[in-house]
């Protein structure tokens, strides 16, 4: 741990660690609305099967998760809970915002109770547009995130300094 935080990691070691992180992403399922069903189809159905990409969708708590998929409408009432969930996750942590509602409010852009995008409360790494996005789109978002993990400079990421520009699928 100390080696990573010191920022003096040898390159091959970084590569190896990134490779192993890339293929063991533990994804916490934060199902909110319609997109949760498509996320369920991507994560739990034999047809899409996210596990073949090395994503394990069954952590029992956010404290064991590397990735959270915010799938669905974020309302002002659920914001404290999402915020708390995000704070509980250990660094380095990744967020996929799935669907138009989580991206920007979507069809509820003018509603009085909907938060206009989850990026107002937590930083987002990957945006998956769609209403709802197909499971394939979510899988592509995960693949793109894995590419980013592979090429990441771990120390800066762990210090939360360099998140990079968010990825937009499609």
């Amino acid at each position: 741990m100390g080696l990573v935080e010191s920022g003096k990691m040898p390159k091959p070691l970084t590569k190896l660690l990134n490779l192993s992180r890339k293929y063991s992403v533990w994804a916490y399922q934060w199902g909110l609305a319609c997109c949760a069903i498509e996320m369920g189809a991507a994560f739990a159905s034999p047809r899409y099967d996210v596990m073949r990409l090395g994503v394990i969708p069954f952590p029992a708590s956010p404290r064991q998760a590397d990735l959270v998929v915010i799938s669905g409408t974020v309302t002002d009432k659920i914001v404290p809970a999402i915020r708390r969930l995000y704070e509980q996750m250990p660094d380095p942590k990744y967020v996929i915002s799935m669907g138009s509602c989580a991206n920007c409010g979507g069809p509820y852009w003018d509603s009085y109770s909907v938060t206009k995008g989850v990026d107002q409360i937590i930083p987002v790494d990957v945006y998956v547009p769609g209403c709802p996005p197909r499971p394939e789109a979510l899988l592509e978002g995960i693949v793109l995130l894995q590419e980013r993990i592979q090429n990441e400079d771990m120390p800066t990421r762990w210090r939360g300094e360099n998140r990079g520009e968010p990825i937009v699928v499609g």
Binding site: D76, K77, G105, W109, D110, S111, Y112, S113, K116
Partner: peptide, 26 residues
């Protein structure tokens, strides 16, 4: 039932504005 306790106003009364629409037309 639905909204946080701190919420002010009664949304389905006609005078309740949808502020997003006031700022940006549909």
């Amino acid at each position: 039932m639905y909204l946080p306790t701190e919420f002010e106003g009664h949304p389905l009364r006609k005078e309740f504005p949808l502020l997003a629409r006031v700022v940006k037309p549909w």
